[in-house]
Design a protein around this nucleic acid. Sequence first.
DNA 1: CGGGTTCTTGACTAGTTTCAAGCAAAGTGG
DNA 2: CCACTTTGCTTGAAACTAGTCAAGAACCCG
Lengths: 249, 249
Amino acid sequence: MRHISHRDRHDCTHCPLRKNPAFRPFDPEQLEFIKSFKVGEISVSAGSTILTQGQSSEAIYTVMKGWGFRSKTLDDGREQILNFIMPGDLIGLQGAVLEEMGHSVDASSDMLLCVFERQKLWSLFSKFPSLAYDLTWLASREEQLLDEHLITLGRRSAMERVAHVLVLLHDRAVETGAAPEGTMPFPFSQQQLANTLGLSLVHTNKTLRKLAARGAMAWRDRTFVMMDRNALCEIAKYDYTVLKPRPFI
Amino acid sequence: MRHISHRDRHDCTHCPLRKNPAFRPFDPEQLEFIKSFKVGEISVSAGSTILTQGQSSEAIYTVMKGWGFRSKTLDDGREQILNFIMPGDLIGLQGAVLEEMGHSVDASSDMLLCVFERQKLWSLFSKFPSLAYDLTWLASREEQLLDEHLITLGRRSAMERVAHVLVLLHDRAVETGAAPEGTMPFPFSQQQLANTLGLSLVHTNKTLRKLAARGAMAWRDRTFVMMDRNALCEIAKYDYTVLKPRPFI
DNA sequence: CGGGTTCTTGACTAGTTTCAAGCAAAGTGG
DNA sequence: CCACTTTGCTTGAAACTAGTCAAGAACCCG
């Protein structure tokens, strides 16, 4: 399920994420601190649960590789996917700061995570205010994505919803270097997409087929191909603000 | 519309919010800093807009009195209310940290706000890590509420949705001292409730009538009376975690 | 006492869900 | 290596929840 690998631990100095210009650089002192903050790496396989709703978490993670999602489940089994997780994202902050996690986090593909200890979080605040600020940036960004998701679920039609997530996810993936322009690996089932959009599986499928029939996109073998970006954006009423280089921990 | 009142400015030492045991106390140094961080007070009248979607904000606010809401609007006019705002809540952080605000904030009742300057935010991080931590707490708490709202919009039926917001809002109001147990002022129109729940006005109204007919609740004159909490909770599948004393700025 | 919101209700419509069934692809075990 | 099972995708038809239209009642403001 999970495998902690201390041996092939990456040195933060050569963190692969930092090569991507979308992520802001660290100064040497910050880097030194991050190194001490990091307690290890963990690799989780596709399908496994990283954090569980209702529990508290002793660790915070930064995603280095792979995709996952945050979700929330009702007692009767209804599930809602809250947001997708990709490289550079921080997970477990809610569980570290509040008493317990209101959501679960699952890996959709194999993932590689950096592990930070909850106990050391306070030293981040007290010694590195710039990193604390980045944490706040990350939390605000997550809030912005949730806001967007809320208007999608509350006010957009099925067609708009599907088009909207696809373009948004594509742009996020391109930004973080997780996918090339135009094509992206999409390691999710239609059931999961339905659970994201607040739609039934059947209706999600029919909507996808309609978009494909229009030549707007294609989706086979867990890969999404954006064939007509303009069409998708128009349907979705999409409007994505490009971000300045973003922080990560 | 708005009225800046420097004269009757409250001294943070006797901040009315702090009397409420739900809010955690400050130590003297923190208090001193907050005093210097605060640049004034503002009172806004019911119905006015405090922050506007798409703009950036030069200020951050803490709510002292009154209720409001955060919302997001599409170009064609469809509106989604993202969350309600009540005493102790912080607004404008997203606009201060990111480039621009993705949402608007409106006052539903007359409100009294403490104003903090965006420029001084950095000094909060560098000099008072404990307050920076509180900021993160607040952001995490907001995220938790948005998560809950997402599963409401995505997976709950109309009846469940209505019952759920009512109980949740009631509990939040009681917690912050904005309302006594069982009854709460509800300064929102049914149209706004509909925009919160992702439902049409008509259907929201019919659902409210059904709940009233069951004797679960009553709502007249912008006041909500919770008549049968158990019934509402059961319908809503409600499950609210009581919080330890919460921070505020 | 108008005139404008806000609430309420009924009738009709549309979008989405549920049910059902078949098929393809990918595992599983003998 | 081939039945057997499981999981995911696809499609049509029926049922239902929620949306739209319309119009009157109640309430609020000046």
